[in-house]
Write a protein that binds this DNA or RNA. Structure first.
Lengths: 340, 340
DNA sequence: CTTGACCTGAGGTACGTACCTCACTAGACA
DNA sequence: TGTCTAGTGAGGTACGTACCTCAGGTCAAG
């Protein structure tokens, strides 16, 4: 049988009350006694029964997902997974909620984060650009004892091991390799399209893409990144211009996570050019483009896994445990029509 | 607040004891009363608190993984994940264990399965070839009230929706598409290597591979499958023969899940032929071959996900719930050096 | 020596469910 | 009329932990 708090009390030579004080970090215990209890924990291999603990606490955990206010299909995917997570963990008394922030207005965003209170949330996963205001807001949330982890978008200064998301340099490199192999040694240019190159994630993908191209595929010339700023009209225009200006265009790499608009433009303007088009994230648009053949491949991460992983890590942090690393590594997936 | 059994008793106009009898399927309750309780469950939206339930039961669940006695790296991967699963779910009182069977001796295997008792296991995930003896043994386990699901290797007749594993036809098709794209339109032959073509999974992969090749890549001629029967010497010999007999060999598709020996042979005998080699399952051998460039890509399934999914489904079945389908779909993953 | 701050123990209740015993009732049957 | 039985209710204990109160103890400062 697994040792209980009672066994622990006996082993440490203290009362149940003291065990409780130590386990839950309450004050009023001499350092010496704390050590004695901790030694006993190791000695008898005590492990808190989380079932009983959460039952006794009369409430489970509430976690928030800080997400941008604006978004298209990829964001919707995440919202769906958050709804699913509520079903998955209802029996374990875990509730999950989205918190939307205006990512283009760092002040408003920071303000929204400052309103997140211990009363409402035990922890939050933050998907937000890396600005000083956000960084500060995160720091202050932690001071309020709210567990905080970066989500999908990395925040440089935060402990790296808790980041839930992919290595974007590797994701870009993966795209680079696929572009190279699919171009079959032909000589030509490749266009790179993105919402904005301001974000760290985009930069890293571009870096990874360029590194592989330069090293292995000298037949390809990668053009400077084109920024759409999320504007459909502008997107069409720059794609049209690029197609006209590059007769020897072989491929297009859509860096951002919202590929719908660029893909629509590609289907309208470039369907007769037999281009190798690569995009990120599995969404209705990318999926259908893959089936139609507009897209050669999708580089994606599993949104369900992302959300569940964040929840597991937040819970582990709340319970002062460490999560199982191998379960939480988010994989960079390659999708083609056959393995959709 | 969530309704409890007490609320349910009040709503149904019965006592707690009766509610307990109905919820846990005990005898001695009139049909009319059972219906009344079930109606009340729906009406007030009662949902059993699993935390409290497992705590009160004084024991969690014990699940078994029926695996072949013999195996190489892929099997070892699964064993590692089973060990990890024990860590993941220790707090929820779930124990997982491997049960090894001799898959080449259907009688012994069936005998081993017949020894699995309700005392030791609440449910098992079975990875075994589809023979009449095994099918029978599984049927009898179910009669003994042990939850049983097919694992990795599908069993045709068992309810399909509980199968934990990938669609092998799609996996073969994925390999076919990659082989086609990587061959860049060159004309030549492709060899297919496998332990044995006896298993349904191998056949399905081959079918998927052929379908894509025939439809889209008429430049490729797919050779008949070569069977190694797990014998290293034989493997070397048939690979050597194939290499010598096919001057225009473009690629090799290793169908089986244990690719170590064929890969070693390829590295020894075919490293100067610039072949496109594809294999299944992420293992130390395939990973290192991918890094070295011997392999063009790996088509794999996440073993951790497989094991966890099986556990979640078994638990759901024990608790008379349905698992969340979207979480349990095992993905066919493509690995190249960049997204390892 | 007294005071007060700090530490510790004893004992309780509660969480929501499982599982047990016992008593009671209504109706069937002899 | 009495006996039997299936169905039901009342009440309890237990699981392992959290959280509460209160009583008593130690020890240093005054």
């Amino acid at each position: 049988m697994r040792p209980t708090t009672k066994d622990l009390a006996k082993a440490a030579g203290v009362s149940l009350a003291t065990v409780d004080r130590v386990l839950n970090g309450r004050s009023g215990v001499r350092k010496k006694t704390v050590d004695a209890v901790n030694d006993a924990i190791k000695k008898i291999g005590f492990e808190r029964n989380q079932l009983a603990a959460t039952l006794a606490r009369k409430r489970g955990y509430r976690f928030g997902f800080v997400l941008p206010k604006e978004g298209d299909e990829f964001l919707e995917e995440i919202l769906v997974r958050i709804r699913e997570a509520n079903i998955t963990w209802r029996a374990e008394m875990i509730e999950v909620k989205a918190i939307r922030i205006d990512e283009h207005d760092p002040h408003k965003a920071a303000l929204a984060l400052s309103k997140v209170s211990t009363k409402d949330f035990d922890g939050v996963a933050v998907m937000a650009p890396e600005t000083p205001q956000i960084r500060d807001a995160i720091k202050r949330m932690r001071e309020r004892d709210i567990m905080t982890i970066p989500f999908i978008a990395n925040q440089q200064d935060i402990e790296k091991d808790n980041f839930v998301g992919i290595n974007n340099r590797a994701a870009g490199a993966t795209a680079g390799r696929l572009m190279g192999r699919f171009s079959c040694g032909r000589t030509g240019t490749v266009a790179v399209i993105n919402d904005t190159m301001q974000s760290r994630d985009s930069l890293e993908r571009r870096l990874g893409f360029d590194a592989i191209s330069n090293q292995f595929f000298s037949n390809l010339t990668i053009l400077p990144s084109l920024e759409t700023f999320g504007d459909p009209e502008r997107t069409h225009k720059i794609i049209e211009t690029t197609l006209n200006a590059n007769a020897n265009l072989l491929g297009v790499y859509i860096i951002g996570s919202e590929a719908r608009v660029p893909l629509e433009a590609m289907e309208r303007l470039g369907h007769d050019r037999h281009l190798t088009v690569l995009a990120h994230e599995r969404t209705p648009s990318t999926t259908s483009a893959l089936k139609k053949g507009t897209l050669a491949a999708i580089i994606t991460q599993d949104t369900g896994h992302l959300v569940r992983s964040a929840v597991r890590i937040l819970r582990a942090k709340c319970e002062n445990r460490s999560a199982l690393a191998s379960q939480e590594r988010i994989r960079i997936e390659i999708l083609i029509a056959e393995n959709l």
